[in-house]
Design a protein around this nucleic acid. Sequence first.
DNA 1: TTAATCTACAACCATATGGTTGTAGATGAT
DNA 2: ATCATCTACAACCATATGGTTGTAGATTAA
Lengths: 110, 110
Amino acid sequence: MFHALADATRRDIVECVLLGKSTVSSLARRYPMSFAAVQKHVAVLERAELVTKERRGREQIVRANIAAVRDASTVLDHFESLWRSRMERFGDLLAETVASEPGHPRGAAE
Amino acid sequence: MFHALADATRRDIVECVLLGKSTVSSLARRYPMSFAAVQKHVAVLERAELVTKERRGREQIVRANIAAVRDASTVLDHFESLWRSRMERFGDLLAETVASEPGHPRGAAE
DNA sequence: TTAATCTACAACCATATGGTTGTAGATGAT
DNA sequence: ATCATCTACAACCATATGGTTGTAGATTAA
């Protein structure tokens, strides 16, 4: 799951597909890479169950599976709740504004 | 970020560290692998800014960076909001109980 | 001082990964 | 029927990855 989302192209594919159904070829036209490369990315997402494929004639329709996205969110929410319970044990909600462990600055995304 | 979380050991390390400070060696004792392997995992997490390291004598204290976790959550929340706005465009909130695109069952986690 | 503990770093290895080009079958349009 | 479009699959490649063992320096404990 997280691995599938670790690639920027794949995240973009998920985003596209969440906005509406796509075919593999329409997705392929979006990225500066070979069709086969996009196919591979879709295969990774499919294996992670973030998308499903449905053949319609000569085309494969790619659909999102929001439940799988939510599964990933659940893991992160769990991390957040661990953090919050620890903060409460500290009885120190000030640390929350620092958004990191006390005394440490926040970092940037991936 | 997502890549760093893609490995089960690394997720577990994040969880440990969120619960409280750890040293690299205390983390290493938790997993059935060499110290160097755990070190590598910590290095990946550090590079993704999910943790920071602070030397204290001969030890390295490992601390969580919840802000980075939240950055990942933001991406997933964005996906969720895309999905929701599309559902609203459908004017069909029934689809939400299916938890996937209409006509498709939900999948399992990673 | 010696021994124990902790860590950094390097080299190695089998496997995986994000791309490539190539081949070929199926479907759809003309 | 031919041509265009779409897709599946294979092989390849340079690089990355999750582990290994080995070497060695720094800190701490006895």
